[in-house]
Amino acid sequence: MPGAPASGGGGGGLRRNAVWAFVGAILASVVWTGTVVVVPGIVGGESSAKSLGGYHAVDRICDAGKLTAFRGKYKMVDNYPLEHAGRSDSMDVMRCYALMKRTPEGSETPEYATLDIRVELHKAVDSVPEFAAVRHYFEQQKYEITDAPGLGEEAYFAYGDEPTSSDKTFHDINYHLQVRDGGMTYSLYWTDNYQTGENHTLDRETVRKAMLDDTRDMLKAIGGP
C-alpha cells in the first residue's frame, strides 16, 4: 500500500492498523450491494429523477472541497487522496479515497484512519428509494442512527463500533454521513480502529463536526447551496 509504514520496531502493529483502515474502506464500497440483498425491489422499474439543482460533477472532488477539517487533524499519507469521476447520461459519480495518519499526544506510534467519499448525481431514476434502502441497511446492522442537521433534504449519521476479528480486543469504529438533496446522494465514510486499553482515537463529537464541516464545503464545491 503506498505510504504504509515500513517494518521495524512495532511494524507489525502499524501494518495491521493501516490494513484495517484499508479493509474498512473496502467494506464501505459494498454497502450498496448489501442493501440490494436485504432490500430487494429498489432496482428495476420506472421512476422519475429528482432535480439536480446546481449540482455538477468535478474531476477531483476532494481537491475541490479541500477537506480542511480533517487535514487540520491528520496528515495525508503519500500518494493520497485517490480521486475518480465518471459521467454518463444516467448518472455521474465522483469518488475520493484517502489514507490519513496522526500521532497522538504522548505516543510515538502513528494512528491511521481512512476517509471514503462517494457522490452520485442521479439523472434517470428517483434517488429516494435507494437512499431509504441504505438507511434500512444500517438499521439492520444495528448501527446507531442520528439526524445530521442543515444538510440537503434529508441527512443522517450512522455509527458502529465492533470487534474486527477473533481477538475481541481489536475494534473498528465506523462513521457514515449520508445526505440526499434532490437527485444528489452523498456518502462520507470515516473509519478508525483501536485496541482495548490503547484507545487514542478522536472523540465522537470531534469526528462528527469534522464530517459536517468538510461535507458542507464539499457540497458547495459541486454546486450545492
Score class of each variant (00 low, 15 high):
Gly12Val: 12
Val38Cys: 07
Tyr156Thr: 03
Gly54Thr: 00
Gln178His: 14
Glu111Gln: 11
Ser47Arg: 07
Ala49Val: 08
Ala133Arg: 10
Cys62Tyr: 04
Ser166Pro: 01
Tyr80Gly: 04
Gly11Phe: 09
Arg204Asp: 15
Arg135Tyr: 01
Ala21Cys: 14
Val134Gln: 08
Val23Gly: 03
Asp78Met: 05
Arg118Val: 06
Leu27Phe: 10
Ala210Gly: 06
Ala210Phe: 01
Tyr74Cys: 02
His171Glu: 05
Glu205Phe: 08
Gln141Asp: 10
Ser187His: 00
Asp192His: 02
Glu154Trp: 04
Pro5Asp: 06
Thr169Glu: 11
Thr35Ser: 09
Glu111Ile: 09
Lys50His: 08
Glu120Ala: 10
Leu151Ile: 03
Glu105Gly: 11
His200Thr: 15
Gln141Pro: 03
Val77His: 05
His84Lys: 15
Glu144Phe: 07
Ala25Ser: 13
Ala25Pro: 03
Asp172His: 08
Ala124Pro: 00
Ile26Cys: 12
Ala133Pro: 06
Ala113Lys: 00
Asp161Pro: 02
Met100Tyr: 01
Ala28Cys: 09
Arg95Thr: 11
Ser127Gln: 13
Ala64Trp: 03
Thr169Val: 06
Glu162Met: 14
Gly224Met: 00
Met91Leu: 14
Asp161Trp: 02
Glu144Lys: 12
Lys101Leu: 08
Gly160His: 11
Asp167Met: 04
Val19Phe: 10
Glu198Arg: 15
Gln195Trp: 05
Phe138Arg: 04
Gly24Leu: 00
Glu198Leu: 14
Lys101Ile: 02
Asn79Pro: 04
Ser165Tyr: 04
Phe157Gln: 00
Thr114Ser: 11
Thr185Phe: 04
Asn174His: 11
Leu115Ala: 08
Ser48Ala: 13
Gly9Arg: 12
Val207Thr: 01
Leu188Asn: 02
Val134Phe: 03
Val19Glu: 13
Asp213Trp: 02
Ser90Phe: 12
Glu46Lys: 13
Glu120Thr: 12
Met184Asn: 02
Arg15Asn: 14
Pro104Cys: 13
Asp78Ile: 07
Pro110Ser: 09
Glu205Lys: 14
Arg60Met: 12
Pro40Leu: 08
Lys209Phe: 04
Gly11Arg: 07
Lys123Leu: 06
Val119Met: 10
Pro2Arg: 07
Pro104Val: 10
Asn174Val: 12
Ser165Leu: 05
Lys75Ala: 14
Tyr55Lys: 06
His56Trp: 03
Asp192Thr: 12
Met218Asp: 02
